[in-house]
């Protein structure tokens, strides 16, 4: 039972990782919190649903969801953040404008879905259960864990091992110097937001499949969880977000399984509190959080 729950938690954590890594990527590069990330995630789920509902196979929906969410995130940066950044102090302004974007996107989907909960048709993803060593794992869970692992590893490789990643990190560290060596920061921002949004969209599809419940509010709890995860993992740290997501997924699953259900969130936030007491910058964060604290 315990091992089964740990396994379930790992799968859930993998999906959180997709969500949180993109969230953190954007924070890492611009020091801005994109609070529309939950709405982008929800958009991914809806795009996949309507694609499947229109008769296309799931993989088409998956790809369209990733692309659509990526483009949406790119637009949010251009419309909501770019001018604010030019004016200087965007830290607080971006929070307000991205909440605004989030409300607009949610309202649009509420209108399209007529405030209904929609579900993927039965067997959109084949229901196959594997049993071994007394454990049960569905094909969907395997797919989720696999997709999360592959995408997160690809992301880390992209950021730390390719020339694209070098340019991203250069812009993150020193935008002016990056321009002087020939990097166009706006292009890097477009690409980074696209990646971040595509990851959110992909996790939206996976969550939509796993819980078979797609509605215009579904992004909100994930935004909250994502927030906890990137603070736990360390602001701006990709490996930190991955580690914190897996821990978060397992803790959440275990508390749901073994404690009264009302205590889940209390327990999670208590655990976050404890970890931050011991490691104020998160599990793998550098002085980032400290720097923010110092500026207040």
């Amino acid at each position: 039972m315990l091992i089964q729950q740990l396994l379930n938690g790992l799968v859930v954590g993998g999906v959180y990782a997709l969500f949180a890594v993109g969230f953190n990527l954007v924070f890492g590069i611009q020091r801005l919190l994109n609070l529309a990330h939950g709405a982008i995630f929800m958009t991914g789920a809806f795009v996949a649903y309507y694609t499947v509902a229109a008769g296309w196979p799931l993989w088409v929906g998956f790809i369209l969801a990733a692309i659509g969410s990526g483009v949406l995130a790119m637009l949010i940066e251009i419309v909501c953040f770019r001018r604010l950044r030019k004016s200087g102090d965007a830290e607080f302004g971006a929070i307000i404008s991205s909440v605004g974007a989030s409300l607009v996107i949610m309202t649009v989907w509420q209108w399209i879905s007529k405030t209904q909960i929609v579900r993927f048709p039965f067997e959109t993803f084949p229901v196959i259960i594997f049993r071994f060593w007394g454990l049960r794992v569905s094909a969907l869970q395997l797919f989720m864990a696999g997709a999360a692992l592959v995408i997160v590893v690809l992301m880390a490789w992209f950021v730390y091992r390719t020339s694209f990643g070098r340019r991203v990190r250069a812009v993150t560290g020193n935008e002016k110097a990056a321009m002087l060596v020939g990097v166009n920061p706006n292009r890097i921002y477009n690409q980074t937001y696209f990646l971040s949004g595509a990851l959110a969209g992909a996790s939206g599809v996976l969550v939509g499949l796993a819980f078979n419940n797609i509605n215009y509010m579904m992004g909100e709890p994930y935004l909250m969880f994502g927030f906890v995860i990137i603070i736990l993992g360390g602001l701006g740290s990709i490996p930190g977000a991955l580690l914190a997501s897996l821990i978060f997924g397992m803790v959440q699953t275990l508390t749901i399984a073994f404690l009264p259900s009302g205590l889940t969130n209390a327990f999670i936030f208590f655990a976050m509190f404890l970890i931050l007491l011991i490691r104020p910058n998160g599990l793998m964060g550098k002085e980032e959080a400290g720097a923010l604290r110092g500026r207040r």
């Binding site: 070098r166 990190r169 993150t172 560290g173 020193n174 002016k176 110097a177 990056a178 002087l180």
Partner: peptide, 11 residues
């Protein structure tokens, strides 16, 4: 080559 070096410190 800007004033104050401006190298990418984390790279």
């Amino acid at each position: 080559v800007p004033e104050g070096r401006q190298v990418f410190a984390d790279l």
